[in-house]
Computed example of a mutant assay.
Amino acid sequence: MATFRQDPLLAIARIVLTFLLGLAVFVGAAMVLAAPVMLIFRDKVFAELAAQHMTVPHGAFVAAVVAILLMIAAMAAMAFLWVRHLRRIVDTVGQGDPFTPLNAVRLRAMAWLTIGIEAISVPIGALVLWIGTVTEGNDVDFGLSFGGVLLALVLFILARVFRKGAEMRAELEGTV
């Protein structure tokens, strides 16, 4: 672990990743808590919408908002796992041994988590678009993120690179 303490970039990365882990927990918890709050205070929400002369279908609106909150909580949970895998990879770099089969598994898991996050963003976007159409005066835009798909592809490739690197190192150690 001495190498980790000597490399300021790895130390900064670990601090940032730890902050991101906390942020993911906070966002996930806030969304899980907000869902029942929305159900409890739905009458106040509709009263506010009515005060702005907006008529929305009550049941569908509440269901859509609660679904969005819970899907965001799921995305936050996946983001937590994603960042935790990355922090563990950073730790192995600091220890001087990044090309391990476990890091290849972590990278592949990160790729699948990225795909999961992107997949959940589609129904969230659709629900947000619907909410924008039923609440007058709200201009909502939604688009797919090709950056997330590209990130998943890069992570799958890096997972193979790490797996092959670990295999080559094991082979080399076996011949020495």
Rank of each mutant, 00 (worst) to 15 (best):
A2Q: 12
T3R: 14
F4M: 14
L10P: 09
I12W: 05
V16N: 11
L20V: 13
L21K: 15
G22K: 11
G22H: 06
F26R: 10
F26H: 11
V27G: 06
A29L: 12
A29F: 05
L33E: 02
L33Q: 05
A35F: 01
L39V: 10
L39Y: 03
R42Y: 07
R42S: 13
V45H: 02
F46N: 08
A47W: 03
L49A: 08
A50M: 04
H53F: 09
V56T: 10
P57F: 01
V62N: 02
V66K: 03
A67E: 02
A74H: 00
F80M: 07
F80Q: 05
V83K: 05
V83A: 09
R87M: 03
R88P: 02
D91M: 12
T92Y: 01
V93D: 01
Q95M: 12
D97H: 13
F99Y: 11
P101A: 13
A104C: 10
V105W: 02
V105T: 14
L107M: 14
A111Y: 07
T114L: 05
I117S: 05
A119N: 00
A119E: 01
A119D: 01
I120D: 06
V122G: 02
V122N: 00
I124H: 00
L127T: 09
L127V: 08
L127H: 06
V128A: 13
W130R: 05
G132V: 04
T133N: 10
T133E: 09
T135A: 11
E136H: 14
D139W: 13
S145K: 08
F146H: 09
F146M: 10
G147Y: 08
G148Q: 07
V149F: 03
L150E: 06
L151S: 12
A152R: 11
V154T: 08
R160F: 00
F162A: 13
K164E: 14
G165F: 00
R169N: 06
L172T: 10
E173H: 09
